Amino acid sequence: MSASKPLKGIELVDCAKANARQGVEVAAELCGYGQDIISFQQELQQACQGMGVEISELSDLITEQQTVRQRGGVEIAPDSPSSL
């Protein structure tokens, strides 16, 4: 579901990260920027810089953990936060 208005700040970064695998066009649409890819990329750059994160392109937001899940790797984690 796409946002009704362009997202900003951490909401934009979260949405962009969640949709980065689908490409910049889809991520821009779902983050509320429609076909305005340039504004989406500029706002994303500013939002990331505000968080102290440097990115050069959308795919920089894809984490290794997301890649492992995509390829069908095994994720090992405790049963609960208290059993770390």
Rank of each mutant, 00 (worst) to 15 (best):
I37L: 05
R21A: 08
S82T: 13
E29N: 11
P6G: 00
Q70A: 15
K17N: 07
A18G: 04
G23L: 06
E11M: 12
Q41V: 01
Q45R: 15
A47M: 03
I37F: 04
S2D: 09
V74T: 12
I37H: 04
L12V: 10
A47V: 03
G50L: 05
Q70Y: 11
D14W: 00
Q42Y: 06
Q42H: 09
V24N: 00
S83H: 08
V24L: 08
E11Q: 15
A18I: 06
Q42D: 15
Q66L: 06
E29G: 03
I55R: 04
L84A: 11
Q46G: 05
Q22G: 00
S39G: 02
Q45H: 11
V26P: 01
L7Y: 09
E75H: 05
S59R: 14
L7T: 10
S56C: 04
L44D: 06
S56L: 04
L30E: 02
T67G: 02
A3L: 15
D60S: 05
L44W: 11
D36H: 12
N19Q: 07
E64R: 12
C48W: 01
A47E: 11
R21H: 09
R71E: 10
L84Q: 10
L7C: 09
A77S: 11
L44C: 12
K8R: 12
S83F: 05
E57P: 00
G50K: 01
S83P: 00
T63H: 01
C15G: 01
P78M: 14
V53E: 06
S56P: 00
L44M: 07
Q65I: 09
K17W: 01
E64Y: 14
G72K: 07
S59Q: 10
A28P: 01
P78H: 14
K8Q: 15
S39N: 13
R71H: 11
V74P: 00
Q41K: 13
A77M: 08
I37N: 02
Q49D: 14
I37Y: 10
Q46V: 05
P78D: 14
Y33G: 11
L30W: 06
Q65P: 00
P78K: 09
Q22W: 14
C48D: 00
S59Y: 08
G72Y: 09
Q70I: 06
A47K: 02
D79P: 00
G50T: 01
S39R: 13
Q66K: 02
R71M: 13
T63M: 02
E11D: 15
K5F: 14
M1D: 04
C15V: 07
T63E: 12
G23P: 03
D14H: 03
P6F: 10
I55L: 07
Q70W: 05
E29F: 13
Q45L: 13
G9I: 06
V13T: 09
E29D: 11
Q45C: 07
E11G: 15
S2A: 10
Q46R: 12
Q65S: 10
E29Y: 12
S39T: 11
L84C: 07
V53F: 09
E64G: 01
P81T: 10
R71G: 01
